[in-house]
Amino acid sequence: MIDAFMIIAYVMVVGIAIGAVAALLQKDLLRAAFLSGAESIALAFLFQALLAPDLGLTQAIVATVLMPGIIIIGIFKTRRHEEE
């Protein structure tokens, strides 16, 4: 017995897993930062589903703006591609 709500939750969990693994496998650090942000947004949906809407909002803001922003500043001050 799987309803639409659980299907969305499954999709989000799969999105989290793919986002996390893909972020760590990227050679381009900028793309890795954005992918980790996408993973965090899927997490925000899960927070909403777990009846913590305040956390969902906070996580959405932090994940889209702050975390990638800080990491991107770091990337622009250092280098964009992983060296061999």
Partner: peptide, 28 residues
């Protein structure tokens, strides 16, 4: 992972996981 920025991204994933576990603990 060897790259320091990658390590930092991995740290954000870790803290996301801990956050999710903590929220899930309280779910009814």
């Amino acid at each position: 992972l060897d790259n320091i920025i990658k390590k930092i991204i991995a740290f954000t994933l870790l803290s996301d996981g801990v956050n999710l576990a903590l929220v899930t603990l309280g779910y009814v």
